[in-house]
Write a protein that binds this DNA or RNA. Structure first.
Length: 751
DNA sequence: TTAGGGTTAG
């Protein structure tokens, strides 16, 4: 600041400073500045200084006056220091370093100044500095007053609340401020921050509760910890005590209603607006839309949306989310296309809609549009995209997404990490999933569960169970889905006794009552191990009505172990639940064919024809150079169709040279043997393999995702091909992975 | 003190 070096030319150097003042102040300021520059330490100079300080509006003005007083050797009194410190601490462009500098020059700052400094640190979100200053204050025997604690606690974040919250509470009691309403309010805020909701509630319950803000804080605290019922109870209590809720109260309570999908209560809150007791604004209207949308009342939500004077991007996104939640993704898209502007949240809401409806290709298409629109994806978007990659088995794209998050420094939190683990497993990349897991700085229940499930479906049952043991060591609590993974690990590796004992311990050790899916796992476990009667007994004894998963598991076991009698029982039950389920007929046909029950097969085929039952077409996906190609059985729609069929012929020749005989035992069409061979030969996974072989360089892994179970013939062919062409083939079918290498499969032919 | 988005199975 050159003017400090040349004080005599003050009138010129101060020019920019003077221009920044409002016109009404200009004359007085000019006069006073000049009088300071000309006078010495006369009483008049001090008077002028007081005037200047009272009227200065910005930190810059203040600093200039301060430097001037130093120049002139004016001794400052406490009121001047106070003015400097409070302006630096509390104004918008404040300067805490400057405030601290001045503060440290003071011999015995009073409690007001300590408080002001603490308030300043809280305002700039430096709670650690505020706490050290508070400690310093105590060391210098300055007693805190009723302002100290609210100022101190206002700036607390979660970390420091956990670290010092309780200690500060002790001080509050010691200094006798535990009954001060403002202090109580701050305490509730801090306890809510660190999740100690019961402590917050204790403070709240002893407070006078006269002010609506304290109610709002408590309701918001309950919301943050997911205790929405408690929020509603408090709202009831407010009505009883005739405390008029504010707009904020209604927004918070509505948020709870949305979570609980409690339409009746939501309507009661809405009544406050309808009766004119609370005047609505944009936020409240958005909350109302969200509540009605969450409760599936899209017509009401749209009614409010249409009546609103102003709508923002949140209003639009809430409508989109509403349609997505009731599965009307096309309606959601209509509104999405109409939006005047979209941010990353709106894009993600729409992308997520496609993901929830299993429209994975639309997910990727919309993601490309999002990039073309120059909207930067964030962690939430990445999670959705990785979900689509996982479902499509699109490893290349998944890898690209990972590189993208690293390059653009998208927050790589536990959600993104979990999604990456899941994506790698669903693409059969076990090693990369493991690496991801070890790299994650924070792991949660979902991380462990993703590992257990992923290892299990990829055939590493033992490792999955070890992972479960580590999870318990890490004091992470398993949930019902973790146990589905654990039981699946036992099933896929044939660990029957372990499975039985886990089924018992999930209740005895973790209080998780098995649901219908867990019973399905047990039926699968026992059935695949050949204990079909025991499996049937599980179904008979289970406390709920068995569903299609349970009977389907039994039917699958009957196929593996060729148990016609039990298969018929299971199929009958399945068809009662889902008369149009083509897969059941197919499986039963497979079993009749495999057991050479030709009469039964013929009868069943007739029934299929009469009822017009359609089989779900087999469909295989393969990703080549970042594009996903889809094949159905006998597909001729691919642009490179001719070359694919040529490759298929070449493949068949090579297979026959290696001693391959087609296995048509699972073909139940009423056609000749040659046609059966033809049909088997055109299964979707064989077309995908042929395409993979011709489109990728030697030695690369071929990955395929199939919607149905692999047939015996395709499984056999894949094993042979892995040896003939020295290629690793990974096929993900409906329930598990097959890693084909050197002529054998990771499933040990047990699927 | 307030409104819109994400992870595990079948």
């Amino acid at each position: 600041m050159p003017f400090l070096a040349r004080p005599r030319k003050t009138h010129l150097l101060y020019a920019p400073f003077l221009f920044s003042l409002r016109p009404t102040h200009t004359r007085a300021f000019t006069k006073n500045v000049i009088s300071i520059t000309t006078a010495t330490t006369s009483p008049e100079a001090y008077q002028n200084l007081g005037f200047l300080l009272r009227n200065c509006k910005t930190i810059d003005q203040l600093k200039q006056i301060h430097s001037l007083t130093i120049q002139k050797g004016l001794a400052l009194d406490v009121s001047v220091y106070s003015k400097i410190i409070s302006l630096c601490s509390t104004s918008r462009g404040g300067d805490m370093e400057y405030a601290r500098h001045v503060f440290d020059k003071m011999l015995e700052p009073n409690v007001f100044l300590w408080n002001t400094m603490i308030k300043g640190y809280s305002r700039i979100n430096c709670p650690n500095d505020a706490v050290s200053l508070y400690k310093e204050m105590l060391e210098k025997n300055v007693k805190p007053d009723n302002y100290t604690f609210p100022f101190l606690l206002k700036g607390f974040n979660r970390d420091i609340s956990v670290e010092c919250g309780k200690g500060i509470h002790g001080h509050i009691c010691k200094f006798g401020f535990d009954c001060n309403e403002f202090v109580q309010h701050s305490m509730i805020h801090v306890y809510c921050l660190c999740g100690l909701i019961n402590m917050a509630r204790k403070v709240f319950d002893t407070s006078a509760k006269g002010d609506v803000i304290i109610w709002n804080t408590m309701i918001s605290g309950h919301n943050k910890t997911g205790q929405f019922q408690e929020s509603r109870k408090l709202f009831d209590e407010m009505e009883e005590k005739q405390v008029l809720p504010s707009l904020v109260t209604l927004v918070s309570v509505l948020s709870g209603c949305s979570e609980l999908k409690d339409l009746d209560y939501g309507k009661r809150v809405h009544q406050y607006v309808k009766d004119g007791r609370i005047e609505s604004n944009l936020t409240l209207n958005n909350s109302l839309i969200n509540m009605y949308a969450a409760c599936g009342q899209m017509n009401v939500a749209l009614g409010i949306f249409c009546d609103m004077k102003d709508r923002d991007v949140i209003s639009w996104t809430t409508i989109i989310k509403g349609f997505v939640s009731i599965g009307q993704v096309d309606q959601a898209r209509e509104y999405f296309d109409l939006m005047p502007q979209r941010d990353s949240i709106s894009w993600t809401a729409m992308i997520d809609g496609y993901l929830k409806m299993n429209q994975f290709k639309d997910v990727l298409l919309l993601f490309r549009e999002m990039q073309a629109a120059n909207v930067k994806p964030d962690g939430f978007t990445i999670v959705s995209i990785l979900g689509a990659c996982a479902n499509l088995g699109a490893l290349e794209l998944g890898e690209w997404v990972r590189a993208y998050t690293e390059k653009y420094k998208i927050e790589n939190d536990v959600y993104v990490g979990n999604s990456l683990i899941n994506m790698y497993f669903k693409c059969g990349e076990v090693e990369k999933a493991r690496m991801m897991f070890h790299k994650m700085p924070r792991k949660d229940k979902f991380t462990w569960t993703a590992m257990i499930v992923g290892l299990a479906i990829n055939g590493h049952g033992r490792e999955a169970l070890n992972m479960f043991a580590y999870m318990l060591d890490a004091l992470e609590t398993p949930d019902e889905i973790t146990y589905i993974g654990v039981l699946g690990a036992c099933t896929h590796s044939g660990l029957v006794n372990e499975g039985r004992s886990f089924f018992i311990s999930m209740t005895t050790k973790h209080g998780i009552e098995p649901n219908v899916v867990h019973y399905g796992c047990m039926v699968d476990l026992l059935g695949r191990a050949g204990q079909i009667k025991e499996a049937y007994k599980v179904i008979k004894d289970m406390p709920m009505k068995p569903n299609t998963i349970v009977w389907g598991a039994l039917l699958g076991a009957c196929r593996v172990h060729k148990d016609v009698e039990m298969a018929e029982k299971a199929a009958k039950q399945l068809l009662q639940l889902e008369p149009e389920n083509g897969a059941v007929y197919v499986l039963l046909c497979n079993i009749y064919a495999a057991c050479k029950k030709w009469d039964n097969l013929r009868d069943l085929r007739n029934i299929i024809m009469q009822r017009g039952i359609k089989k779900t077409p087999g469909c295989s996906l393969i990703e080549i150079n970042g594009s996903v190609h889809e094949f159905v059985s006998g597909d001729k729609s691919h642009p490179q169709c001719q070359a694919i069929y040529l490759k298929l012929e070449e493949m068949t020749e090579d297979l026959k040279l290696a001693g391959y005989l087609p296995n048509t035992s699972e073909v139940f069409l009423d056609i000749g043997e040659e046609e059966k061979e033809n049909a088997v030969n055109r299964h979707s996974e064989k077309l995908a393999i042929a395409f993979g072989l011709m489109s990728s360089s030697p030695g690369t892994v071929i990955r395929i995702v199939k919607n149905l179970r692999m047939c015996v013939d395709c499984h056999h062919v894949a094993k042979l091909l892995s040896k003939i062409y020295e290629r690793k083939l990974i096929v993900r079918d409906r329930t598990r992975f097959h890693h084909f290498r050197q002529g054998s499969c990771s499933c040990k032919d047990y699927w």
